[in-house]
Computed example of a mutant assay.
Amino acid sequence: NISISFFSDWLSMVYMLAYIPLIVPANLLLDRKGLHVMGMIGTILNALGAFVKCFAISPERFPVIMLGQSVSAVAQVFILGLPARVAAVWFGSNEVSTATAIGVFGNQIGCALGFFIPPIIILLYTGASISCFLFILVAICKSCFFSCFFFLFFVEKPDIPPSIAQMVVHSLDLDRSSSQVTNYFLSLKRLLKNVPFCVLLVTYGINTGSYYAIGTLLNPIVLNYFPSEQLNAGRIGLTLVMAGVLGSLVCGLWLDRTKWYK
């Protein structure tokens, strides 16, 4: 059924839809409030989204699962910017690319498990198995939130800046006022006028867009030619993501050693 497939695809596309309008204010909030606050917001929204989806086991409750998925989509906006910020603040210039790759590693492993585990659950196709899977997901998300919330000794940045760039940032000692908002948008404006950055933006967008498009439509594409191969469709997605994880780690190490960013 085309309509069912279309609405099911929106369970994935809502992540991209939420990202477009929210990424700029989320990055601004990251600049003003720091890593700890962003981590708490992201983890609590993730836990809330997972909890809402526990009430959507029946097919007629699709709006409920869409609501939970939308909350989780908003949560990922607050999470995806953290690896690069942690790498920039805590690691030296020869370690930033590797640290970023390792930080993104967790997100990619989650995507890989998302391709691999749900098809197995669907093949079992019992309300109890799906319900159990969703409650396990809630428990994992809640443990992440409580770990972030009760981590009282969370340190935003090291006492000694790890790089020249961070030393400059420390020396500026910007206050948490409207001037910081102005500086953020001025930086954004300068980036959009930078031709190499715009080229990188377009090429990365094409690459990421292709990945998400294939990830969203992989199941119907495979099943169109190979019916009843739901499990192998998930394995194809797992292979796709794990190849990217390996490439990310190798390229991160290579960039830190060679500085061949072009």
Score class of each variant (00 low, 15 high):
N1E: 06
N1I: 05
S5V: 12
F7D: 08
F7V: 09
L11K: 10
Y15D: 02
A18F: 08
P21Q: 09
L22T: 11
V24A: 09
P25Q: 14
H36C: 14
V37K: 10
V37I: 15
G39I: 00
G42K: 00
T43P: 02
A47Q: 03
L48V: 05
G49K: 02
I57V: 10
P59Q: 12
P59C: 12
P63V: 05
S70R: 04
S72P: 00
S72M: 12
V77D: 03
L82A: 06
R85P: 02
V86D: 02
A87C: 05
V89K: 14
A101L: 10
N107I: 14
Q108S: 14
C111G: 14
A112L: 05
F116A: 14
F116L: 14
I117M: 03
I117F: 03
I122D: 00
L124T: 02
G127K: 04
C132H: 13
C141K: 05
C144Q: 10
F146C: 05
F146S: 08
S147M: 14
C148S: 10
P158H: 10
P158I: 12
P161W: 03
P162C: 12
A165I: 15
A165V: 14
Q166H: 06
Q166F: 01
Q166Y: 00
V168K: 15
D173L: 13
D173V: 06
D175P: 10
Q180E: 15
N183P: 04
F185R: 08
S187L: 10
L188V: 09
L188T: 09
K189A: 15
R190Q: 15
R190F: 12
K193C: 13
P196D: 12
F197D: 07
V199C: 07
V202R: 05
Y204M: 13
T208Y: 11
T208L: 11
Y212H: 13
Y212I: 13
I214G: 04
L218S: 04
N219Y: 09
P220S: 05
Q230E: 03
L231I: 12
L231W: 11
N232C: 11
L238Q: 01
V241F: 00
G244E: 07
C251I: 15
C251G: 13
G252H: 09
L253P: 03
R257M: 12
R257D: 14
T258M: 07
W260G: 07
W260L: 08
